[in-house]
Computed example of a mutant assay.
Amino acid sequence: MNGEVADYRRHPTEPGVDLLSARFVTHRYARHAHATYTIGLIESGVEEFDHAGSLLRAAQGQVALLNPEVVHTGQAGVPEGWRYRVIYPAVDVVRDVAAGLGAPAGTPFFPCTVVDDPAAARLLRTVHASAARGDALASSSALLTALGAIVGRHAARPYGHAPDQAASRSVRAARDLLHARLADPPSLEELASAVGTGTFALLRAFRAAYGLPPHAYLTNLRVQRAREMLDSGLRPAEVAARAGFTDQAHLNRHFKRIVGVPPGAYLLGRV
């Protein structure tokens, strides 16, 4: 046994926020992106991750601040692995906090991915502790206090543009086609033909725009859709078919590589 454990659950008072507490040693996150922000406190060990083309390391006591839709990985940076607590706030939650602080309209952006901020570390621990106790007032207050402090100290101007706006028309069309044909995707050749470009040109342009090649983007999208279906009450076996996975084992494997826990454990934290 390597002592790995992970608990993934919804925040008790804010439906737009998820919480993860985990210790990983051998687990490796696949390249993926979240629709939410990722704000994680390293409690012990070191997490190493590829992030927007750079290899970063977050050590004990440091806080990682990942913006939405930025492709990254995650793995142990030392033999003993790492233990961390994470909050995943939806974009509109962080945007509302920023507006309450008087920030200009738009989506807040964290320019520094790994920061040393002991006060933020304490606040993140409080978010998890209050959520575990189930006190609605305390957990709401702790969450907003933590987000307000982190946004106020570390967020910069809003995004200048979303990744989709930077993509060419053909790449956006390819992305839309993948969204439309989640369970029955075209081949790369069919995708390129449908948007009027060559396969190699599309492969390069798609990765430059979205951080992942089309097949990996599709897997990430399927896992995101699977989460939405699980949240709506569907069971994993049904979700696997609807999201385009071969079977439930296929769903389980990719879900854990991206979310950190398998679908069954994910569901336990939604009740």
Rank of each mutant, 00 (worst) to 15 (best):
Q75L: 07
L65R: 05
V78F: 01
Q75R: 15
V71F: 14
E80H: 10
R85G: 06
V46M: 07
L56Y: 01
E80W: 00
R85Q: 14
S44A: 15
G53D: 09
V71S: 15
A52K: 12
P79I: 04
W82R: 05
V86N: 02
V63A: 05
A90D: 14
A64W: 00
V63W: 03
A52L: 13
G40M: 13
Q62S: 11
I42A: 05
L66Q: 03
L41V: 05
P89A: 06
D50G: 15
F49S: 07
P68I: 12
H51Q: 06
Q62V: 04
H51G: 03
R83G: 03
G74A: 09
N67C: 12
E80P: 02
Q60A: 15
Y37H: 09
E80Q: 14
A76N: 11
G40A: 15
G74C: 07
Y37Q: 05
E43I: 04
L56F: 00
P68H: 14
A58Y: 06
V70E: 15
L66V: 07
R83H: 08
D50A: 15
E43C: 02
G61P: 11
L55N: 09
V70C: 10
G81M: 05
A58P: 08
L55H: 13
P79V: 03
V70P: 11
L65V: 09
R83L: 01
V70D: 10
Y88I: 02
L65W: 05
G40I: 06
V78D: 03
Y84G: 13
P68A: 14
L55M: 12
V70Q: 13
G53N: 07
G45P: 09
A64L: 08
V78E: 14
P79A: 08
L66D: 00
V70K: 11
A76T: 08
E80C: 03
A76W: 06
A64T: 08
V91F: 04
V70F: 10
G77C: 04
V71T: 15
R57C: 08
E80N: 08
S54K: 09
H72K: 12
A58R: 09
N67G: 11
P68W: 13
E43D: 08
R83V: 05
I39P: 00
Y84L: 09
V70Y: 06
P79N: 02
A90F: 06
A58I: 09
Y37P: 00
T38I: 13
V91C: 05
H72W: 08
L56S: 00
A52Q: 14
Q75Y: 08
I87C: 04
G81A: 06
V86A: 10
G61S: 07
H51V: 09
W82L: 02
E43M: 03
G74L: 07
D50M: 11
D50I: 04
S44F: 02
G77L: 01
A52S: 14
Q60M: 06
H72E: 11
